[in-house]
């Protein structure tokens, strides 16, 4: 219960919290809307909001409730990251394969997440918009090599073409289940310490950054 992913016996339901992080316009919202609603750039979509979406899965006979938390990607909200990602079981770090800056942002997120949450959190690095292969500015080798070096998994997706998205989420869920099971075993082995990190919101100051324009994202306005 306290770990959020808590589930013991065979008929238990896992509940996982996953945060979406990344620069504005890389396709975070498009990815979840594709995954949960199978919609892309749909003007007639009836969904009221795409900031908190859930998905129920059944993985090898175990029920999983996945809660996907979109985060505000504007630079001026960067310092709020820790409030969003605390207690999360997984993080999906999205960049746009045509935008090198967005990949740099992902690297910053990885550093911060590892510093704040250690290895408790499952990291996915996602290069989105692979339908725009011709305009690619981040090489596959570089991205995958980096992911491996920080203990994250790398995925390539296109929200537009619905490519690689199912795999991404399924894989992530399996990894989070493994982590939760390992945690339970550790608990069972006597180290039964109720969550010490249950509370405690703190905001870390931004690393000094170039005074980038704080204007809205392309998707707003």
């Amino acid at each position: 219960m306290a770990s959020g992913g808590g589930a013991g016996g065979s008929n238990k339901t896992y509940s996982f919290k996953v945060v979406l992080l990344g620069e504005g316009c890389v396709g975070k919202t498009s990815l979840v809307l594709r995954y949960c609603e199978n919609k892309f750039n749909d003007k007639h979509i009836t969904t009221l909001q795409a900031s908190f979406l859930t998905k129920k899965l059944n993985i090898t006979g175990k029920r999983v409730n996945l809660a996907i938390w979109d985060t505000a990607g504007q630079e001026r909200f960067h310092a709020l990251g820790p409030i969003y990602y605390r207690d999360s079981n997984g993080a999906i770090l999205v960049y746009d394969v045509t935008d090198e800056d967005s990949f740099q942002k992902v690297k910053n997120w990885v550093k911060e997440l590892r510093k704040m949450l250690g290895n408790d959190i499952c990291l996915c690095i996602v290069g989105n918009k692979i339908d725009l292969e011709k305009e690619r500015h981040v090489s596959v080798e570089e991205a995958e090599g980096y992911a491996e070096s920080v203990g994250a998994k790398h995925y390539h997706t296109s929200a537009k073409l619905n490519k690689g998205i199912e795999e991404l989420f399924l894989d992530l869920c399996k990894r989070m289940m493994e982590t939760a099971q390992a945690e339970e075993r550790a608990k069972g082995n006597g180290a039964s310490q109720s969550s010490s990190a249950r509370r405690g919101v703190q905001i870390v100051d931004d690393e000094p950054q170039a005074a980038t324009a704080a204007g809205g994202c392309c998707s707003s306005g």
């Binding site: 919202t29 003007k43 909001q49």
Partner: peptide, 11 residues
């Protein structure tokens, strides 16, 4: 006329 994302919601 599109679902709100976190970029819209938080501000």
């Amino acid at each position: 006329s599109e679902p709100a994302s976190a970029d819209d919601f938080l501000p």
